[in-house]
Computed example of a mutant assay.
Amino acid sequence: MSTPDFIREIRATAGHQLLWLPGVSAVVLDDEGRVLLGQRADNHRWALISGIPDPGEQPAAAVVREVEEETGVRVAVERLVSVRSGRPVTYPNGDVCQFMDLCFRCRVLGGEARVNDDESLAVGWFSLDELPEMTEFHHFRIKQALSDEPTWFDPTAPQ
């Protein structure tokens, strides 16, 4: 995954210490009910399309931008699916990040699914019964996007 310039600037002074960052992800569904996935270049795993909002960028606008930048598909955001904090991730260079993921359900407006940048090895549409191997976190977000449940958040969080 390409590191945004603003994070490179922070890393110049923060070193490898944990950075708490916003993240956005998209469950993009086509008219046939298939899900858009990308095979990540950094770890070769299939995943929902995701990224980091630019400073000042609204999360919904960021997810629309990320989907088009990575896949060539234009989308409209339908709703917020989940708000969830992930586990810290340590990258091969020693950088540590923890992301607060805002996941959105999106519908396709146009474009053809393709590898559109250097962040993906492959991009494709998958029926729900033929999803490639992915982490449980991806399956969770897809399930939430397909349900009529309200936005998911951890109800055990202190109030």
Results as ranks from 00 to 15, higher is better:
Gly72Gln: 12
Val73Lys: 00
Val73Ile: 15
Val73Glu: 05
Arg74Ile: 02
Val75Tyr: 07
Ala76Phe: 12
Ala76Asp: 15
Ala76Asn: 11
Ala76Cys: 09
Val77Glu: 10
Val77Gln: 03
Val77Ile: 11
Glu78Thr: 03
Glu78Gly: 04
Arg79Tyr: 09
Arg79Phe: 08
Leu80Phe: 04
Leu80Met: 13
Leu80Lys: 06
Leu80Val: 04
Val81Lys: 05
Ser82Phe: 07
Val83Lys: 12
Arg84Val: 02
Ser85Val: 13
Gly86Ile: 10
Pro88Leu: 15
Val89Glu: 15
Thr90Val: 15
Tyr91Asn: 08
Tyr91Cys: 01
Pro92Asn: 13
Pro92His: 07
Asn93Pro: 01
Asp95Tyr: 10
Asp95Lys: 03
Asp95Ile: 05
Asp95Cys: 10
Val96Ala: 10
Val96Lys: 14
Cys97Tyr: 12
Gln98Leu: 12
Gln98Tyr: 04
Gln98Val: 14
Phe99Glu: 02
Phe99Leu: 09
Met100Trp: 06
Asp101Gly: 03
Leu102Lys: 10
Phe104Ser: 06
Phe104Asn: 07
Arg105Val: 05
Cys106Gly: 04
Arg107Asn: 04
Arg107Ser: 14
Val108Gly: 00
Val108Leu: 03
Leu109Tyr: 02
Gly110Ser: 01
Gly111Lys: 00
Ala113Thr: 00
Ala113Asp: 00
Arg114Ile: 01
Arg114Glu: 02
Val115Met: 02
Asn116Gly: 09
Asp117Cys: 14
Asp117Ser: 12
Asp118Trp: 00
Glu119Cys: 05
Glu119Arg: 12
Glu119Tyr: 00
Ser120Phe: 09
Ser120Trp: 06
Leu121Gln: 14
Leu121Glu: 13
Leu121Asn: 14
Leu121Ser: 08
Ala122Gly: 01
Val123Ser: 05
Gly124Asp: 07
Gly124Phe: 05
Trp125Phe: 10
Trp125Tyr: 07
Trp125Arg: 01
Phe126Gly: 07
Ser127Val: 04
Ser127Asn: 04
Leu128Thr: 00
Asp129Asn: 11
Leu131Thr: 11
Leu131Val: 06
Pro132Ser: 14
Pro132Gly: 11
Pro132Glu: 14
Glu133Met: 14
Met134Ile: 12
Met134Thr: 13
Thr135Glu: 15
Thr135Gly: 15
Glu136Lys: 08
Glu136Met: 11
Glu136Asn: 09
Phe137Thr: 07
Phe137Ile: 09
His138Trp: 08
His139Met: 07
Phe140Trp: 13
Arg141Cys: 08
Arg141Thr: 05
Ile142Cys: 07
Lys143Thr: 14
Gln144Trp: 09
Gln144Lys: 15
Ala145Cys: 05
Ser147Thr: 01
Ser147Ala: 10
Asp148Gly: 15
Asp148Cys: 11
Glu149Trp: 02
Thr151Leu: 05
Trp152Ser: 13
Phe153Ser: 04
Phe153Met: 05
Pro155Asp: 12
Pro155Lys: 09
Pro155Trp: 04
Thr156Val: 00
Thr156Ile: 00
Ala157Gly: 08
Pro158Tyr: 07
